[in-house]
Design a protein around this nucleic acid. Structure first.
Length: 425
RNA sequence: GGAGAGAUGGCCGAGCUGGCUGAAGGCGCUCGCCUGCUAAGCGAGUGUGGGGUGAAAACUCCACCGAGGGUUCGAAUCCCUCUCUCUCCGCCA
């Protein structure tokens, strides 16, 4: 959410930002509602002031035994007037709120301008793409042949787009989760949290999934509860409505959670394999930062996420999302894309964003500076560190051998108790 | 599922027979003072949001005592609905 005052005072800037995002929102109408709101507010406040004054007068007159009937009658009318105006005010505010909640964040000045994902520049690359003396198989073929993935049975249990890991596959998934958590907690100073996987409407609104993107979520029948699409939601909302102490910033959390997404509108895309599932595992990094250091924190967060791929020796590249491809709540986003040999393409495996005060304003997360009065909104950031299912897929594909077995990256071997996955493991 | 108790400022905690209570007191924090009796004492200050005037400092107004309604000239205080927390019973793990 943007601040209404900011929109009022920076109309050209907001309009330009929306245009660069390819959004069409009528700021003019919005600001007219705001004018209307303030005009009515002024009137209401004047009436309230008068009522407050006279009410006190009535109190003291009663104490003296004076007759107050005339004043009481007059105030009865004033109160009715206030009630009417209040109603019209809340109607106007409703309209303003609706627009405000669906207004996306302003991109940071360093975000490249572009219309869609085809214009996202690559900002760095790491690792060498493996060369195979055979045609590399896709991970679903490898996984099914080894008996560690079973999509047929998964669809029997739940349906399309659900994973079933078996044996060494289940162990590899768990090894990855533990490895990622260990690196982030032991080496990068993140605090591990294990949050609820179901959240209420307020939390979803706080991080920006609602009200605009309800169709992307799984909602619980008969409850105003939603399955989390990412740990970002419960973890960012840990500090919802709080005023934080300056000296505990930045706060760094890492959380493993399953994630649930309806994937509405993605029919026909990535129909095979682990890339696009209704349920997948993710280790998420979340930060709360002071405004002046949030972009430094974004770079560090990105590096922390990258370090997982570096240790797994998986080739990847980092792209900076351009204005037209930026997510609703983000001011700036880097995507990390891992090399997928079977498709000869880099696939998104992490998304690291700075939301600045956009989420903090919605979720009401502030901090207080020492020796200064008043509070300020914190900046929130998050990034995958990493999407586990996609990491699993990348390992299968990049580490596949001619005989269809998978060698295990060295750093994972202590977690796996083996150095390769064969049919026998 | 049944019975009861509660929700007040950064925190703790009064007020709840309606009217100088935006809210006592304490803690914390900030600034200043003092200091031979040392994690002390003294003094002052210290909520949030919104509006108006102003270049700004500032001044001023309105709202906020879990949320939303109601009663009333006037509500933290009375009534209703909802949410959450706690205790006891039942049930399940």
């Amino acid at each position: 959410m943007l601040e209404i005052k900011f929109v009022r005072q920076n109309k050209p800037k907001v309009q330009k930002a929306l245009l660069m995002r390819g959004e069409t929102v009528d700021i003019e109408t919005f600001l007219n509602y705001d004018d209307e709101r303030r005009a009515v507010l002024l009137e209401i406040e004047e009436l309230r002031r008068r009522r407050n004054l006279v009410s006190q007068q009535i109190a003291s007159m009663k104490k003296d035994g004076d007759d107050t009937d005339a004043l009481v009658i007059e105030m009865r009318e004033v109160s009715n007037k206030i009630k009417d105006l209040d109603k019209s005010l809340s109607e106007t505010e409703e309209k303003i709120y609706k627009i405000l909640m669906e207004l996306p964040n302003i991109p940071h000045e360093s975000v490249p301008i572009g219309k869609d994902s085809s214009e996202n520049p690559v900002v760095k690359q790491f690792g060498k793409q493996p060369e195979f003396e055979f045609t590399p198989a896709p991970h679903w073929t490898l996984g099914e042949n080894l008996g560690i993935l079973d999509f047929d049975r998964a669809s029997k249990i739940a349906g399309a787009r659900f994973p079933l890991y078996l044996g060494a596959g289940a162990r590899l998934e768990r090894a990855l989760i533990n490895f990622m958590l260990d690196v982030q907690t032991k080496e990068h100073g993140y605090k591990e949290v294990l949050p609820p996987f179901i959240v209420n409407r307020k939390s979803m609104t706080g991080t920006g999934q609602l009200p605009k993107f309800e169709e992307d979520l799984f909602k619980l029948e008969g409850w105003d509860y939603f399955m989390i699409p990412t740990a970002e939601v419960p973890v960012t909302n840990i500090h919802q409505g709080e005023i934080l102490n300056e000296d505990i910033l930045p706060i760094k959390y890492v959380a493993y959670t399953p994630c649930f997404r309806s994937e509405a509108g993605s029919y026909g895309k990535d129909t095979r394999g682990l890339i696009r599932q209704h349920q997948f595992n993710k280790v998420e990094l979340v930060k709360f930062s002071k405004p002046e250091s949030s972009y430094d924190e974004l770079e560090k967060l990105l590096n922390n996420a990258e370090s997982i791929l570096q240790r797994l020796k998986l080739p990847y590249q980092v792209i900076s999302l351009c204005t037209g491809d930026l997510g609703f709540s983000a001011a700036k986003t880097y995507d990390i894309e891992v090399w997928m040999p079977s498709q000869d393409v880099y696939r998104e495996i992490s998304s690291c964003s700075n939301f600045e005060s956009f989420q903090a304003r919605r979720a009401d997360i502030r901090f207080r500076r020492k020796g200064k009065k008043g509070t300020e909104l914190v900046h929130t950031l998050n990034g995958s560190g990493l999407a586990v299912g996609r990491t699993f897929a990348a390992i299968l594909e990049n580490y596949q051998q001619a005989d269809g077995t998978i060698s295990i990256p060295e750093v994972l071997q202590p977690y796996m108790d083996c150095s390769s996955i064969t049919k026998e493991t």
